[in-house]
Design a protein around this nucleic acid. Structure first.
Lengths: 125, 125
DNA sequence: GTTTTTGTTCTAGGATTACTATAACAAAGG
DNA sequence: CCTTTGTTATAGTAATCCTAGAACAAAAAC
């Protein structure tokens, strides 16, 4: 799985990393049981500090996407709390859809985009 | 329109303010042509600094949700660039949906949530 | 047994951002 | 004339982000 960090972005590096790993899981580029690179190796590959990678991994652990084992490192393992996931998603969606709605994006167009995104993922499986 | 700031949140105050105003527009609590409170008055009401409100207004202007007039202050006026809005929304949706998908939220459930949110807004009009 | 690699922890410094605080300005309106 | 408007400048505090170097115990590799 290829990770691309935009150093010009105003989004923190550890957040870009977190989001890309989550999208990697969603697209099945990363599967349950897969191990992520060690913090030192990934930091070296990307050209950032070890602690920045460690922070991304810690956030992923806290959010229930990986478990961290001293021997094997970070392992993709999903702690599914669907009720919580739905509540959190609704909150995020409200902000995203409000912005879109102000710009005259219709409910149908949103549905279309959702389908597009899900289709992209299913193709890659 | 009621604005609620969570001072314990890790989200910046000016971003909370920006998002609530955008949601206010989406729900028609704020309509095109309406004037927002002056930066000093709103800052006083909320109990924050004038410059924090000013920053929120500046972001809203840059994103095309309000125009700012020296006489009347910030006025809701939507600069609709739908192509850009769709592109930006898709990028945001990708992250939100990836998180949900990992937690076994289905495409159908996302559609349901989208409808729920749009319905909330339409009821208030 | 020795060496390497693993995550973890500590301290520390630099850079940037967020927020607050004053103060002052020109423009418009009452 | 006085008030209110957004705007700008300066300044300080606090928090966050990122980097850096060092060290530790535990597990794996040799």
């Amino acid at each position: 799985m290829i990770i691309e960090i935009d150093f010009q972005s105003d989004e923190a590096i550890y957040m870009q990393l977190r989001n890309q790993i989550i999208m990697g899981i969603a697209t099945s580029a990363l599967q349950e049981g897969d191990t992520l690179p060690s913090v030192r190796q990934l930091a070296d590959d990307i050209g950032i500090n070890m602690h920045t990678v460690n922070k991304a991994y810690s956030v992923l652990r806290q959010e229930g996407f990986v478990t961290i084992d001293r021997r094997r490192g970070a392992i993709v393992s999903l702690d599914v709390d669907k009720t919580r996931a739905l509540a959190e998603m609704k909150q995020s969606l409200r902000v995203v859809l409000a912005r879109a709605s102000c710009k005259n994006v219709t409910r149908q167009e949103v549905h279309g985009l959702v389908d597009e995104i899900f289709s992209e993922w299913e193709q890659e499986e």
